[in-house]
Computed example of a mutant assay.
Amino acid sequence: MKDQLSEAYNLLIDKLEGWFNIIVTNIPNLILAILVLFAAYFVSKYVNKYVSKLMARRVEQNSITNMVGRISAVVVVLAGLFLALGILNLSKTLTSLLAGAGVAGLAIGLALQGTLSNTFAGIVLSFRKKIQIGHWVETNGFSGEVMDINLKDFTLKEADNNIVVIPNKKILENPLKNYTLTTKMRVFLECGVGYESDLEQVEQLTKETICNTFDQIEKPEDVEFYFTEYGSSSINYLCRFWIDAENALEKLRAKSTAIIEIKKAYDKADINIPFPIRTLQFDNKLSFEAQNLEKQFSNN
């Protein structure tokens, strides 16, 4: 028993000595491999910036330049990893990794279907000219400025400064409204005036006010004006006009400005914008007759 224990102990010592000798022998290679990995990491950052600037000179889409820069950085990091493995004499391990990449890739692909779909969707979105960083878009119930398009998600900044992160797959599969693609937007304005108002005066005054408020409207005839209905307390109308705008916020500001100026013009012209009124009538003869009958019955 003692012989067996001593033999096992000697084998363990020999093994540890062998490992120690291998580590000591490969310390220079290990240090060099670590330096190569660090160098590849820092070089990838500069490659990302350089490639992005180079692409920006030839391609107008920021999403494409960012995508190509990130892919270039990943390639540099992978090259550094393979070089480090070669320095450590792990070429066989590298060959085994490449050989098993096919089987592992299939398993990983099945497990990460959602992630891979978002990655490919991000690549497709990056090369779409109708969706670029800085555009004002509306999709999936959110609207805002496109801040970033990467391999994972689609980032929007709404008008209230909130950041919305949407998976690329949903952007690609759902409708998207891009306000920036059109340099003009139509403003819809609904209002009502009192029944005593001169309707022709209302129409002309409204058109002139909007024309004088917005420089892009050359003449009052460019403003569309339609009376729509006899309301409960007013005659309602719909006014439509075009403005130079590329996002919903500019449209909202234009509508607010139009409401303010129209109210001022109506006040000067003594045109009433009525609010709903309920009239209570107390001279109902039927109620008085019913009360008189009740008194008669009670007296009898």
Rank of each mutant, 00 (worst) to 15 (best):
D3N: 04
E7N: 04
A8V: 02
L12I: 06
D14P: 00
D14K: 11
K15A: 11
L16S: 02
F20R: 07
N21Q: 11
I22A: 10
N26E: 06
P28Y: 09
A33S: 15
L37M: 12
F42K: 08
V43L: 14
K49M: 14
A56G: 11
N62M: 07
N66Y: 07
M67S: 10
R70I: 15
V74P: 00
V75L: 12
L81R: 03
L83S: 13
A84Q: 05
T95L: 13
S96A: 15
S96I: 15
L98Q: 06
G100V: 13
G109L: 02
L110P: 01
T115F: 04
S117I: 07
A121D: 05
L125F: 08
F127W: 05
K130C: 03
Q132V: 04
V137S: 01
T139D: 02
N140W: 02
F142V: 07
F142G: 07
M147F: 01
M147Q: 09
N150Y: 03
A159E: 05
N161P: 00
K170G: 01
K170D: 15
I171Y: 00
N174T: 15
C191H: 06
G192Y: 05
Y195F: 15
S197G: 08
D198R: 04
Q201F: 08
L205G: 06
L205I: 14
K207D: 12
C211Q: 14
Q216C: 15
E218N: 12
E218G: 04
E221W: 07
E224M: 10
Y230V: 11
L238D: 07
W242H: 04
N247H: 09
L252Q: 09
I260T: 13
K263G: 04
Y266S: 04
K268P: 07
D270T: 14
I277Q: 12
R278D: 08
K285M: 04
L286A: 08
L286I: 09
Q291P: 00
N292Q: 02
K295G: 00
N299P: 01
